[in-house]
């Protein structure tokens, strides 16, 4: 039986060597298996992901030939075009929408995570599953349902009109608010999950202590709960901001021509305008914003951690 005859993997050492001494020093051949396991995935990611990202960077300096096909080059025109007011405004709008989306998600997710994590008792797990599961449903279908719900003669506006909160001409679709509503609906779960996790980890006796010191519910929440869950909130902001910034479906389904985001521009340059170099430059700009956001978040998180361990 194969199991009984150990294959010596650590070289031509004396076969009488006691087996025990294999443990303290992992053999070279034994370690090689981990390299072989790491390699395929690493090569795959390097070719299909890292190399392709570098290609985007290279093409953003390129030009198009007569057929509209991209050519490599040393053309700075595409990057300069980013400063063009038409593109700049779209980029600023995307940034604004993504930031507002993050803020609104925070405002929704705090009460929801609080109620579910601390006051749902034995229904806690069921409720958090009920929040997570719909987000795995098809994004387009969900977004389509949301746009029907918020449409001009949809149930939400009809109800708001009935109670006098909306006028006859109040619209949600085809406004900036509609696009943000779409982004919030699309990504709010990414805020709820880390906040929920942070609240679960939080020492609830802190809240009791706040109450014992005569803090009202709001004061206790603002000065005890919020600081204690700040890291979860930070992670949530990043997790919402990243996909919101690159989204183009919400602007298409919920907005009009005046609410397009950077994702729509990129889509247009690749599918309708056939200006791939400019599309690549826009993609690089998007990536740059996100890397800056990510970098800022990581620095902040590291500082927080250093303070916590001091």
């Amino acid at each position: 039986m194969a199991l009984r005859t150990p294959v010596r993997t650590d070289g031509p050492s004396d076969s009488r060597t006691v087996r025990r001494d294999r443990r303290p020093r992992p053999s070279a051949a034994g370690a090689r298996i981990w390299t072989w396991l790491t390699l395929p995935g690493t090569v795959w990611m390097s070719v299909f992901f890292i190399a392709s990202l570098l290609l985007v960077a290279a093409i953003s300096f390129g030009t198009t030939d007569e057929l509209g096909d991209p050519r490599f080059g040393t053309n700075l025109g595409n990057l300069k075009a980013l400063a063009d007011p038409a593109y700049r405004d779209v980029m600023l709008r995307s940034l604004g929408y993504a930031l507002l989306t993050s803020v609104i998600c925070l405002l929704i997710a705090y009460p929801v995570a609080y109620a579910v994590a601390l006051h749902a008792g034995r229904f806690k797990n069921a409720l958090i599953a009920a929040i997570v599961v719909p987000f795995f449903a098809n994004y387009l279908v969900r977004m389509y349902g949301w746009s029907v719900l918020l449409s001009d003669d949809g149930p939400v506006l009809r109800m708001l009109r009935a109670v006098g909160l909306a006028g006859a001409h109040t619209k949600i679709l085809n406004t900036g608010f509609g696009v943000i509503a779409g982004l919030v609906y699309g990504f709010v779960v990414f805020m709820i999950i880390p906040l929920y996790a942070a609240m679960e980890r939080m020492d609830t006796s802190l809240i009791e202590a706040g109450r014992d010191l005569y803090g009202g519910p709001l004061r206790t929440f603002l000065f005890v709960t919020v600081p204690a869950t700040r890291q979860g909130a930070g992670a949530g902001v990043v997790l919402v901001f990243l996909p919101a910034m690159g989204d183009f479906v919400s602007a298409q389904f919920m907005g009009g021509p005046n609410q397009i985001m950077i994702g729509n521009l990129i889509q247009d340059k690749f599918f309708e305008g056939q200006d791939w170099p400019l599309g690549s430059a826009l993609t690089m700009a998007l990536m740059a914003v996100l890397l800056i956001a990510m970098f800022g978040y990581l620095r902040r998180a590291r500082k927080d951690e250093a303070e916590a361990t001091r």
Partner: peptide
Amino acid sequence: PEIVTGVASLL
């Protein structure tokens, strides 16, 4: 973001 991965793969 997925759109970046999409653009990169297409290129």
